[in-house]
Design a protein around this nucleic acid. Structure first.
Lengths: 159, 159
DNA sequence: GCAGAAGGTTTCGAATGTCGAAATATGGCC
DNA sequence: GGCCATATTTCGACATTCGAAACCTTCTGC
């Protein structure tokens, strides 16, 4: 296949991959009866070792402090996290994953990591290096374009 | 670097790439004053050549028919799409991108594609083949895992 | 041809998630 | 000790989504 064709295919597969990530998140949320924001919050709390403060969640999720409170409320009600005041700074609230959340992690997230690692073992070290480079390049492109959108003032629509 | 380390890095970069896609969508939505659902709908209408029917949008976006109606309402009010009855089947409503929407496409989406293609030109045909294979494999893993989540009944939480 | 079923979209009311602003509580500073 | 900054929560308002019912249009069987 021509290089031009390959490039087009890569772009298309990247798009499809994006969609498959999206579908996975959706399925995970449905399985837990959570919305996407709650799931992202749970994911953050699980991934981080050591608890997350409410404010950190607010920043990581890019939602308002008010919304964060209700996210934590819902996760707490679902038995997935606990709320404790930080002993060192009693203004802060620490969010900690419960054992139930760890079971969820084992059920949902660990298998993905394992399956992914298994699939990657089929590539040579050189190929993995190429893949890694590609992923970094793709991210760089996205970030540059995101910055372009954010920084430039929007052109007057309908100009 | 060890192969094991490379595999870990690939997993991490994949996660970061996902986040950068997300950030791009968010910036694009903010630039247009649309929510994410509306943006996805616009993207679909732009990507498809030939108009999208309301029902197709409902299925593609995985939202209710009622929600689709309001999505089209908002896009129409923003001057980005037009609603027309399908002449061949007057029950259906066809959604067509306007010229304004095409300007948006040129402003937002085309530059990403161009920057991406430019970046990919730096890879050899062999490398691109590896990348393409990797993307397909990654998608397959995600889809398999999504199916696992969807099909298996959820294990009783807090067992 | 026409009655009734099926298809496609919209309207309506209710539920949910998000926000900004104000309130509350704690910590740091002269 | 009073005052400003930090961290979270409460409150009321707004936007988005849904399910159910309503409304046309098309198809089917007779």
């Amino acid at each position: 296949m021509s290089k031009y064709g390959l490039i087009r295919d890569v772009a298309m597969q990247l798009r499809l991959l994006q969609q498959s990530f999206d579908a996975f998140d959706e399925a995970a949320a449905a399985r837990l009866g959570l919305n996407r924001t709650d799931l992202r919050a749970l994911d953050l709390v699980l991934a981080n070792d050591g608890p997350f403060s409410a404010g950190e969640l607010t920043r990581a999720l890019k939602i308002s402090p008010a919304a964060t409170t209700t996210v934590i409320d819902r996760l707490e009600r679902a038995g997935l996290v606990t709320r404790t005041r930080d002993a060192e700074n009693r203004r802060r609230v620490l969010v900690t994953a419960t054992d139930t959340a760890r079971e969820v992690e084992r059920d949902i997230y660990l298998p993905v990591g394992e399956a992914g690692a298994r699939a990657l073992r089929g590539y040579s070290g050189e190929q993995l290096t190429t893949i890694l480079d590609f992923l970094q390049t793709a991210r760089h492109v996205q970030e540059t374009q995101t910055a372009r959108l954010s920084e430039n003032p929007a052109p007057p629509p309908g100009r």
